[in-house]
Amino acid sequence: MVNPVLLIVIPLGLAFSIPLFGFISRRIVKLIPIVGMLFNLIVSLILIPKVLNKPIIVSLGGFPPPFCINLFAGPVGIIFSFLISLVGLLVSIYALDYIKVQKNRGREESYHMLYLLLLTGATGVVLTGDIFNLFVFYEILCISSYALVAYLGDKPGVESASKYLIQGSIGSSFVLIGIAFLYGKFGTLNMADIARNINSPTFEQVFFPLILLITGFGIEAAIFPLNAWLPDAHSSAPSTISAILSGIAIKIGIYAIARMVIYLIWSIKYFPVSFTVRAVDSISGRIVCIQSE
């Protein structure tokens, strides 16, 4: 029996042991993210056929589900973790040579450690079944991506990272306010329990938390009016981090919004709203793209 907890625990442990490996040899450090992502890839591949039969729910701490923090490894979560580990593996293979080019040898360990932490946060967001645990993993992802955008330490990197940090932390505060309202309304943090208690939600009941959560996650997902950090952060980050930002970090924001709208507050009448947002987002992106030189 392979436990889905391993998908989070092994990369987290490896990430924090990277400085220790750095004492032994500088060469091992580069290989640690590849080992961690290869492990995640294999575990996700083993878990996919099992999960397609029946979702695996892991309760942590030895309490029954509504009271404990639980991991919900459904088909969508496991397939997302498979994709994250695949992208992470490919990018970390590319980073083997790319990070060496930068000629700042003292900080290689911090790059690989933050990179592995970012992927751990992303895997945690897609696998968790607890709304506050989702926030914690989301913050792990956000803080390591702020640091990685400024990794090179040059002028554009630091400037765009500080702008990204200010906007991103306002977004996380909004997410936390939304979680506080949901907890005050339903008295539980378990997503399945909230979804069970919320049957046929009235508009007023979920409007305020939903707006706060969508705005908060929308800043990380860079939905149109909230995307001011994105062009700078992408262009001034190292190429590997640029790939990870658009490949994983933004998709995690979209995944979190989808989880909130579809799974938590299931209601068909919100779909026209999300279609409109998506359409405005695409059209405005093209218009800005045509106007810029």
Binding site: I143, Y146, E159
Partner: peptide, 14 residues
């Protein structure tokens, strides 16, 4: 606290 530490270190570098 982690976000504040990150923000202050970025401010120093800026």
């Amino acid at each position: 606290v982690a976000v504040l530490a990150m923000a202050l270190s970025l401010a120093i570098r800026l």
